[in-house]
Design a protein around this nucleic acid. Structure first.
Lengths: 340, 340
DNA sequence: GGCCACTGTGAGATCGATCTCACATCCGGA
DNA sequence: TCCGGATGTGAGATCGATCTCACAGTGGCC
């Protein structure tokens, strides 16, 4: 019903040769007479023969499929990366199977389990947890090619492509300090995630290097969704001695902050200065436009795909850990702070 | 290297039975002694046996994978749908393989070809072209389960899930007319795409029903990207007798219009009123917020997945064509027009 | 007592592509 | 003239799970 079912056998019969010879002719290996080869190729064409990849996979043990497990495919960051990976894989006749972990470790484990029994060739993975990673370690130990993106897992010997979260966050805070801010709020997500930890560290380091004491009450934690970030923002700015500036650790939280501040009647940058991590299309549509730390998002996917394809091709070298620099894009959401 | 390689044979050996019996015990069919079954299950567990899906697929002719071919995963509309489909499929132990056509018919053809040789079970497809569809017709004719979303192809006998584009566009234009607008511009993408045609028709019908003559010079065509839409907007509003209101056919074009109008110093809704098709998160971040025709996006993916799964389960009924209504969300981007 | 239905199990075939091995030819050089 | 290597081709095995068929017990019933 599903497959028309023109198999190699049919082609061989049509060309009056054995299956072995037909295979040789079509895949050009071994000895085949010119005339025979031609006959086979023509028969294949006439019948519309397409090799059954599943059968090939059974022999070779591998399907031409790569699994991508992002935190959330709806996040434009991952959607972009998925797209780029797919383009790269297509060049090598591989397909991309996307299974979103929804930032849930248990789901991540289940997904990897199920992808493994599919004989998938390799994995590109944004691990949900920086610590609960035994399942990934196991995967790598068994020899499955794995490339980590966006986030890294300690003690894991595989390629990774990440961004300089600490440096980027530091640069953002430096910029706020340079504009006279001292009470700088931080809106961040749960620390389980690797990037959150690094960005927090960047924030702390920057403050410290400027001799500004860390004030825990300026840090607000929430889940990484627009809705939760709105609440966290309101909480943060409802206290008496509120921050004069805010740094948000990802684009969803930046959006939440924007909405939260607006609902409180606080204007940017007059009342509050704002810098967000991760550029997003919305940032240039607001008034004022939002100053952000941009990630080189267009490079992450293609590079991750390339690293993985090299592994698939059998490259045996030490794991490579690529870390891209970030870039501060100054727009209009930061104002100089002067004691009022 | 990739698979540890515990096969049914190993389990059978460990349990001291034949492969056939082991299979019976694990899949519970046919006759197996209670004790034997227990022994097999225990052996399987101890060895950590997982059935090789590729081998199963070779026999059954089908992998537990569904292919999704959207116009572009980076489009939040499709990203959301992809996510919803995936969730639905996961409940039935199926995986989702995403291959973006990038709105290119040739690429769409190639992708479908390559997915077919993968023995994929079914397809959810947003066809790039309303007319060049022989390849899809062919697919359906061969019995492959196909569900079309967002767009429909004429003369194609398969399930589809779309939105009332014509009605939605009509409602948007009605609303503008009700606010006193007569010179209503249209920013639309290439007509090859089904939704574009329908939305254009809605625009035309609405004007006609209000006795407003169609003015071709008020219609601007561009590719559906923010950048192209910016240019098209500027072109449209540079002419002497410019529109007092604008209707944009998708969210990318709405964004382009926003940027284009801003760059020309035209303010919304003072100088130009705006209604867009398709709600998008940015719409509530702008000032004023944008009035849009919203699609019930959260229902499309799950329904498409359900229809497909029913087909996979063997349901043999006439193709179902679901068309969801749209909803006008009035925000602040439309002002009453009074002759100045 | 004998026959049949029901249970339980294993040998081998099957899915489709590919690979190994064996068997033919054919040719040139010794 | 004979031999070894280079060519060309096919039969059959293989990958792993599953299914068909055959076979062997066991029990019940006439």
């Amino acid at each position: 019903m599903t497959q028309k079912g023109i198999t190699l056998k049919d082609v061989a019969a049509a060309a009056n040769v054995s299956r072995a010879t037909a295979a040789r002719a079509l895949n050009s290996y071994g000895y085949v007479g010119d005339e025979t080869a031609l006959r086979v190729v023509e028969a294949a064409e006439k019948l519309g023969y397409r090799a059954n990849l599943v059968a090939q996979a059974l022999r070779s043990g591998q399907l031409p499929i790569v699994g991508f497990v992002p935190g959330d495919i709806q996040n434009p960051f991952f959607a972009r990366i998925a797209h780029d990976i797919e383009v790269e894989l297509r060049k090598h006749r591989h397909n991309l199977l996307i299974a979103s972990s929804e930032e849930n470790v248990e789901q991540e484990k289940e997904l990897l389990e199920s992808l493994r029994s599919l004989s998938i060739r390799g994995f590109i993975l944004a691990p949900t947890s920086a610590t609960d990673s035994e399942h990934i370690v196991q995967l790598v130990r068994e020899g499955a090619p794995v490339v980590l993106i966006d986030r890294v897992v300690k003690e894991l010997h595989c390629d990774s492509v990440v961004v300089d979260n600490e440096g980027g966050a530091g640069e953002a805070v430096d910029y706020l300090v340079a504009n006279g801010h001292q009470r700088i709020g931080l809106l961040r997500d749960e620390s389980r995630i690797f990037t959150a930890q690094e960005r927090l560290a960047g924030y702390q380091n920057s403050l410290q290097s400027h001799g500004i004491a860390l004030d825990e009450s300026l840090i607000s934690v929430s889940r990484s969704t627009v809705e939760h970030a709105v609440d966290a923002t309101i909480r943060l700015f409802s206290r008496r001695n509120r921050p004069t500036a805010l740094f948000t650790v990802d684009s969803l939280m930046t959006q939440g902050a924007l909405l939260g501040l607006r609902s409180m009647g606080l204007s940017i940058p007059h009342d509050v200065s704002l810098v967000g991590f991760d550029d997003f299309n919305l940032a240039t549509f607001t008034d004022p436009q939002i100053t952000v730390v941009a990630q080189p998002i267009s490079e992450i996917g293609p590079l991750a795909a390339k690293l993985l394809l090299e592994r698939l091709a059998g490259k045996k070298i030490a794991p490579r850990h690529i870390r891209f620099p970030t870039r501060l894009i100054v727009r209009g959401s930061v104002a100089r702070f002067s004691r009022r």
